[in-house]
Design a protein around this nucleic acid. Sequence first.
DNA 1: AGCACGCCGACT
DNA 2: GTCGGCGTGCTC
Length: 717
Amino acid sequence: MSLFAEVVFPLPLSQSFLYAVPPALAGAAKPGSRIRAPLGSKIHLGFIVRLLEESPSQIVQLKEILEVIDDIPTISEEILSFTEKLSSFYFSSWGEFLAASLPPSAAVRTATKTTLTDKGRELFKAGKLSRDEGKVAGFLQKKPYSLVFLRKMAGPKNMSQLAARMEKKGLIRVERESKALRPKTEARMTPGPAQLELDFSADRSAERAASEILRAMGRGEFAPFYVFGRPAGRQAVYLRLLQQAMDRSKKALYLVPELSLAGPLQAVLEKKLSIRAVFVHGGLSDRAREAAWQRIKGHDADAVAGLRSALFSPADGLGLVIVDDEHDDSYLQLESPAYDARRGAWLRAAGAKAVLVYGSSTPSIEGFYHAQKEGYLLSLDDDGQARQAVVVDDHAEKGLISQKLKSGLHERLASGKPSVVFLNRRGYASFLFCPSCGYVPKCDRCHISLAYHKKEERLVCHYCRDSRPRISACPQCGSKVLEPKGVGVEAVEEELRRLFPQARIACFDSDRVRGRIVRERTLQKFRERKLDILVGTQLLAHQSGLSPVSLVGILNPEALLAFSDFRAAERTFLALSFMMRLADTGDGASQVLIQTAFPDHHSIREAARRDYRAFFQEEIRFRRLMNDPPFSALAEVSLFGRELRSLAEKAREFSGCVKLCSPDIEVLGPAFAPGALASGERRIQVILRTQKPELLDGALRSCLGGIKVKKTVLRDS
DNA sequence: AGCACGCCGACT
DNA sequence: GTCGGCGTGCTC
C-alpha cells in the first residue's frame, strides 16, 4: 500500500503540497515530522501535516520525500492543529507558524560551494567574460566560495540567475548540500527552590475572581475569562493561577505586549513563586532561543512568558494562558505571517483544554463587549488611588499653555518637583500654509502634508520619513510668509522656554531621542531631577521605569480623534489613560491637566474621570448605531506588489468578486496605503464589513483563492 | 522565499 | 541581433 503526505513549508505560501512517501520512509513519516523534499528547483525543509493512504486523484506526477529528519515527530499534535486553525483563519503560511515553534537548530541550512572550472579560468584570463561574469570569476580565482558570499561581495542583484547562466555555460560548478543542523545541548539552568511565604495582597474581588478561574482550571476544560481591573489586582489573580497551574504540573503561557514588561514580570515570578519561567522574544540570540526551547521541551520550565511569538512555544500540558494588557495593539503581527495573538491565544487554549485569561484596566471595546455578553467578565474593585484629571476648555484660553497649566508648572518649579507635558505631535508644526494662495507642501510619494521640524529646518513626511530642506517662499505664488499650522512638541518646548526661561526643559520624541542611548540618558537625567519639565509625545508615555511625577499636562488629545476610523475614540481614551498613569504617585498630591477643544467628547471626558465603564457604554452605543465592530465582522485585506498597475487590477478583481458573490458584504476600497514599504513594495487595502459574520470566511476563501498575490488578512471574528 | 520564464531597452 | 534588468507566476 502506498503512502502520501501533505507537506507545508516555512515559506510565505498559504498552500500545502502533496508528496509520495517511499516505502523505506513509511515507518518514520508521521504528521509533525520534519522532512526534506524537492520543491521547485531546490530541496527544502518541510513539515508533514497529514498522511493519506488513498491515492489522491491528482493529475501531476508526485515527487517523493527524500528524508525524514526525525524519527519522533518534532511538532506535537496540539501545535499542529493549533497552527492549522490559525493559518486557516488568517490565510497565513502554516509552515511559517510551525517554524516558529522550533528552535534555531532545527533550521536547515543550504550550503553552496561554487568553484571556477578550467574553462571559466581560461576565458577569464583571456578577458572574454562579461562584466558581472568577470567579477565573479575574479573572486573564484583563488578558492571556491558560497553563493551567499558571492552575492555580498561581487554585488549583482540577480546572483542566482547569473550563477545559473554561468553554470550552464560551464564557467563554474555549484555544489549544493543542505543539511539539518544537529541540536546542541545546552547546560540547563535550575533555579533554587527558595519557597517564599506568599503574599498576594489580593482584595476580596481579586480573591473571588481567582477562585472562579481556579474552579474552571480544576475542571480541565477550556474556559475564557476577562479580568478587568488595575494592574496590581490583576497580577494578584495571575499569581494565584500560576501557583495552581504549577501545583497541578500544568504549564502556563503568559503573554505581555512589551519587552520592557518582561523584566519586572520575571522578577515577580521567580521571587514570589519560584516559578521556573522562560522568557522568549524576538530579540533573543540564537543561542538563548535554543536554550529556552530546550528548557521548555525538557520540562525544565513551568511557565513560558513573552511577547506574541511566545504563543508558538512547544509547551506540552498547557493548563493556563494569560494575555495581559489585552487592549494593546502589539498583539497584532502585521507582516507575514499576519495574525492576532489574542485570537491565537484563544485557539491555543481551546485546543489544549486550558483556561484563557485576558486582562486589562482599559479593555478593547470588542474584548470587553464579548466578555460581558458571554458572561466571562470578572471585575476587580478599584483601589480608588488613581487621580482624576482636570479638563480645561481650550476655547477660553489664548496661547498654547493654559493659565491653569502655567500656574501648575510654576508651582512645581518653585517647589523643585518635576512635571511632564504631553503633546502627541512630532515636529514644530504639522504643516506649513501659504496664507495668500492656500498652498501646503506635500510629500510627492504619500500625498500627505509635510511636517515642519524647526530644529533641523526641514520638512518631513511622517509617513515615509522622506525629508527636504525647509522652503522659505511659496513655490506657487512666491509669497514670503508661510505660516506654521498645527502645534507640535517642538513648539510647546519653545513656548515653555519662553514662559520659564530658568527651567531645565527637554523634549522626548522619536526625533530627539533616536536610539537607546540618548533615550536612556534623557530619562536618567529626568530621574535624577536634572530636568524640571519633560515635553514628550506618546513615546514618552510608553517608557517603563519612569517614576510618577506630580504634574502631568496633556495638550490637544483631540488630535487623535482626527483619524476618522471607528477606533479613534478608543485609541484616544487609551492614550489618555496611559499618559495619566504617569501621575499616579499614590499620595494624592499629583495633578493631571487635560487641555482640549473637545472637553465633552466621551473619550476625553471619561478618560479624565477614569471611568472605563462609562466610556464603554457610550462608545458601544455609537458602534451599534454605526454598525461597527463588535456589531459587524471586519476583515482587512492588504495586497502587496511592486507594480502598482497590476496590483490595482488584482485589488479590483478581488473587491469585485466579493461584491458579486456576497451582496451582504460591504466593500470599502480598494484604497492605496500611502508610502512605500522597505521591500520596495506597495500596498493596497480592501476592507470587508458585514452584519453576517458567517459569510465573511466563505467570501474570503472563494475570492482570495483565485488571485495570485502576496497578501495579509487581519480580522476579528 | 527562490527560481524560471518572458518581456523590454542598451550595448557588443 | 544578444545581454541583462525587471516583473509575473509557480513550486506537489
